[in-house]
C-alpha cells in the first residue's frame, strides 16, 4: 500500500510541473535518440518500407487494380498500407525501448513523463512520414496517379498524427504484456477506425477532385479526433508507464 501512495504522489508531482524549456529539451532528446539509433541500424525503416511494398503488391493482385477500379480504391489501399506498416513500426520502436532497458532509464530520468510520450509520438510519426514519403511516389509511379497534392499531404499528416498518438500509447501498453506483437493491432485498430475512415474519405475526395466543402467534414473530424486523443493520451500516459 505504501508503494501505491508513493507512486501517487510521484505522479502528482510530475503532473504539476509546468511545461518548461526542459520539457522540450527532454522531448527532443527522446526524438534525437530514436532518430540517431535508427540512422545507425535502419532496421525499422527498412522493415516498414519493404512491408509496405509487399502490402501494395498484394493489393494489386487481390483487387486486380484495373485503371477504373484503381481510381476508386487508391485512398483505401494507401491507408490500409499505412495502417499495417504503422503497427510494425510501433511494435519495433517500443520493443527496443523495453528490451534494451531504455524504458527504465527514461522513466528514471527526472523529466516529465509527458515529454517522453511526446518524444516517442514525434519519432514514431517521423518514421511513418518517411515511409509514406517513399510509398507515395512509388505508388504514383506504379499506377500513374499524381499523389503529390497539397491537400492529400495535409490529410496524410493529420491521419498519421492521430495514428501515432494513439499508437504510441497503446504500444507502450502492449510491450509490457505477454503477447505483445499480436496484441497491438487488435487493440489499436478498433480504436483507430475513426481516423482511418475519415482519412480515407478525405483522401478519396481529394483524389477524385471533389469540392473543398465536401472534404471539410472528414477533415474536421480528423482534427477533432487528433486533439481529443492527444489530450487523453497526455493525461493517461503516466498510468501506462508506472512500475
Amino acid at each position: 500500500m505504501a508503494t501505491t501512495t508513493e507512486q501517487a504522489t510521484r505522479t502528482a508531482s510530475t503532473r504539476t510541473t509546468p511545461i518548461t524549456p526542459s520539457f522540450f529539451k527532454a522531448m527532443f532528446a527522446v526524438v534525437q535518440k530514436d532518430l540517431a539509433a535508427e540512422l545507425r541500424s535502419r532496421e525499422l525503416l527498412s522493415a516498414m518500407l519493404v512491408f509496405s511494398m509487399l502490402v501494395i503488391l498484394i493489393f494489386n493482385f487481390a483487387l486486380e487494380l484495373e485503371p477504373d477500379i484503381r481510381r476508386k480504391v487508391t485512398a483505401g489501399v494507401l491507408w490500409a498500407t499505412f495502417a499495417f506498416a504503422g503497427t510494425l513500426g510501433l511494435n519495433r520502436s517500443m520493443a527496443i525501448e523495453k528490451d534494451r532497458g531504455c524504458m527504465d532509464g527514461l522513466l528514471l530520468a527526472p523529466v516529465d513523463r509527458a515529454a517522453i510520450y511526446f518524444g516517442k509520438v514525434i519519432s514514431n510519426l517521423a518514421f511513418m512520414l518517411i515511409v509514406e514519403a517513399i510509398v507515395l511516389p512509388m505508388y504514383g509511379v506504379l499506377y500513374g496517379v499524381n499523389l503529390f497534392q497539397p491537400g492529400l499531404l495535409g490529410v496524410i499528416l493529420l491521419g498519421s498524427i492521430g495514428y501515432s498518438s494513439v499508437g504510441t500509447l497503446i504500444s507502450t501498453m502492449t510491450v509490457q504484456t505477454r503477447t505483445r506483437d499480436v496484441l497491438l493491432p487488435i487493440l489499436l485498430f478498433p480504436i483507430i477506425i475513426p481516423v482511418l475512415l475519415a482519412s480515407v474519405k478525405a483522401s478519396g475526395g481529394i483524389l477524385s477532385g471533389a469540392e473543398f466543402s465536401e472534404i471539410l467534414t472528414p477533415l474536421n473530424l480528423l482534427i477533432v479526433y487528433d486533439v481529443i486523443f492527444i489530450a487523453i493520451a497526455f493525461m493517461v500516459f503516466d498510468f501506462v508507464v508506472e512500475e
Binding site: 501505491t4 494513439v166 500509447l169 497503446i170 501498453m173 509490457q176 504484456t177 505477454r178 503477447t179 505483445r180 496484441l183 487493440l187 478498433p190 480504436i191 483507430i192 477506425i193 475513426p194 475512415l197 475519415a198 472528414p218 473530424l221 477533432v224 479526433y225 481529443i228 486523443f229 487523453i232 493517461v236 498510468f239 501506462v240 508506472e242
Partner: peptide, 29 residues
C-alpha cells in the same frame, strides 16, 4: 496477457477509457 493484477487493472482502465471515447466518434463518423 498481463499477470500483475495492479498493472492489469491500470491498462484495462486506460483501454476502456479509450474505447469509451472512440466508439461515439466512430458512430458519428
Amino acid at each position: 496477457s498481463i499477470e500483475d493484477p495492479e498493472r492489469r487493472a491500470r491498462f484495462g482502465a486506460v483501454y476502456t477509457l479509450l474505447g469509451g471515447i472512440s466508439a461515439p466518434i466512430t458512430f458519428m463518423v
